[in-house]
């Protein structure tokens, strides 16, 4: 059975705490361990921070919608905005060591999202609707325990 949860926040960084609590609860309820849930939480934080900083360029009064869909072994968090498009899949992943040696701050969030999740998908229509989908799968034993 598919379960859906949704939350909409204003594009302000002081709302990140609320988003993290929302995602943590849902990930734990779905069957992820605390460690795995924390990884999902961090990936969603990074995605929302990117939307606030890049898609909305720190405008505080825009909307970010966070949809969670869970089914069988798949936990998917969609982060939806209508700001400037930004495609993390075409962003070149930094050579981490070189990146850090030059003390560059950008791009780390995208790197973390891809490292922490099993799959990161992106779709966009500029100025209308950008969606980042963060997907993580339960291990087979945990998925079996759910059904």
């Amino acid at each position: 059975m598919t379960k859906k949860l949704s939350k909409t926040i204003s594009s302000r960084t002081d709302n990140l705490l609320e988003v993290r609590e929302f995602v943590m609860r849902a990930a734990r309820d779905f069957g992820f361990s605390d460690e795995e849930s924390s990884k999902i939480v961090l990936a969603v934080d990074e995605a929302c921070t990117n939307v606030i900083k890049h898609a909305y360029q720190n405008a505080p009064d825009k909307k970010i919608q966070i949809d969670i869909t869970s089914e069988h072994d798949t936990f998917q968090v969609s982060i939806i905005d209508d700001g400037k498009s930004f495609n993390p899949n075409t962003t070149k992943l930094p050579d981490l060591k070189q990146h850090l040696t030059h003390f560059r701050r950008g791009g780390l969030g995208v790197y973390l999202m891809r490292t922490l999740m099993d799959k990161v998908e992106y779709s966009y229509s500029p100025g209308k609707r950008n969606v980042v989908r963060l997907i993580k799968y339960l291990t087979p034993d945990k998925a079996a325990a759910r059904s």
Binding site: F103, L108, G109
Partner: peptide, 16 residues
């Protein structure tokens, strides 16, 4: 209790 890349970025900004 928690750190995201925004926090890590601060250390990178000043270490040099």
């Amino acid at each position: 209790s928690y750190i995201s890349s925004a926090g890590l970025g601060v250390f990178m900004a000043y270490i040099e």
